[in-house]
Amino acid sequence: MDIIVENLTKIYGSQHAVDDISFKVRTGEVLGFLGPNGAGKTTTMKAITSYLNPTKGNIRVGEFSVAEQAEEVRKNIGYLPEQNPLYPEMPVIDYLKFVAEIQGIEKSIIKARILEMVNICGLEGEKHKKIGELSKGYRQRVGLAQALIHDPDVLILDEPTAGLDPNQIIEIRELIKTIGREKTVLLSSHILAEVEATCDRILIINKGKIVADGSADELRKQAKGQEIIILTIEDADSNEVFDALKAISSVELVDKKDGNNRFEIQSRANESSRRAIFSMCVDNGWPLTEMTPVETKLEDIFRELTMN
């Protein structure tokens, strides 16, 4: 089931929480929703789950319109809200049973589904405890279990790993990845490494608008534009090397780094100087001991797009 968001706008008073955004999430895709706090991630997710009515715009989940067939949409969505609200006085098993019944799962398979969820989410030892007695990590698992219990085609997860320890984070990421192979997953986070590790595609939004859309690699390529290489050449006169490097036509900038015959080289847009540098070293007989391409970090892209 695809999620199609068209021209979604949500206005609170005079503030545009979400400003005319459109995107699509395809079946079998895990889309990561990135953005600073208050960028409109949660509002967009709430609109998709039919919790909020958009001021303008259409949202479709599969063939159902969120505005007109809310009940059908809700049947097909598993939703983990931000802060993961739960009933603290309910035992885990009772809560899962309640959600299963509300979702309209057939009575005969409810028990099996609950056991399956308990296994998948690692709740075996905690299933008879009251939710209020659980640690944050286990509560997050209960939240995931309730979102998954009716085997929905679409998963909306608002910061699914918030408050988990590193081991749990890795487990939950693995779980999301496994689920994401068959389902449509939209997850938000402001941990960049997490989005990179779990998501096929990244959507960065800022001040209610989409500022970037693509896989982590595509975003890097877009943001980078220019190739940057760190180079070390030993046993050669650094001034000579410097001049030779400047003479290469595709090189735009050469920077000397900490004296030790180390250089940072920036190429012209859409050109690569790596081959030319290699032949230069061969021609002059300089031993080339390091040539490292500098990767633009996702953090830098994020900062560049969302700071202004």
């Binding site: 919790y51 009940e71 049947k75």
Partner: peptide, 14 residues
């Protein structure tokens, strides 16, 4: 207050 209303209102019930 606790936000559980969001859970209820996003389930297939009116």
């Amino acid at each position: 207050r606790s936000g559980t209303i969001e859970l209820l209102l996003t389930k297939p019930i009116t």
